[in-house]
């Protein structure tokens, strides 16, 4: 009875040990994979970001991004995109799409459409 208990305990320990090793390799591989592609991929725009933050991460002028979403350029405007979208009565996804378009145009050397409103 005691030996069965010990065997079960050792089996569980061995199983846990193998799982921990597997998890270590899994997370290390994922870390390495992301690290290898860190410079090649653009940072996705999120609702918590402000326009100056997006401009910094995507290497574009913030004035052109403000212009693209019809907001008066202000470097001290640190409102998150979600708040801007709410103020403009727009879904935040649409605002992000407009910013993405403006960034693509900016990269292609075109000036984004739209006039500052406020």
């Amino acid at each position: 009875m005691i030996s069965v208990g010990r065997t079960t305990q050792r089996t569980l320990l061995a199983l846990g040990f193998c799982l921990a090793i597997a998890a270590t390799f899994f997370f290390a591989f994922r870390a390495g994979h992301t690290a290898r592609h860190i410079r090649g991929q653009n940072e996705p725009i999120q609702a918590w970001m402000s326009v100056p933050f997006v401009a910094h991460t995507r290497h574009v002028r913030e004035a052109s991004l403000f212009q693209a979403i019809h907001v008066r350029p202000d470097p001290r405007d640190h409102r998150p995109l979600r708040d801007i979208a709410r103020a403009e009565n727009l879904p935040v996804g649409e605002l992000i799409r407009e910013l993405d378009q403006a960034i693509t145009q900016s990269a292609a050397g075109e000036s984004p459409a739209g006039e500052p409103k406020r």
Binding site: A31, T34, A35, I38, R39, E43, Q46, H56, T57, R58
Partner: peptide
């Protein structure tokens, strides 16, 4: 500073 989400992921 331009790759915050990727660095956090790593």
């Amino acid at each position: 500073s331009d790759r915050v989400q990727a660095v956090a992921d790593v």
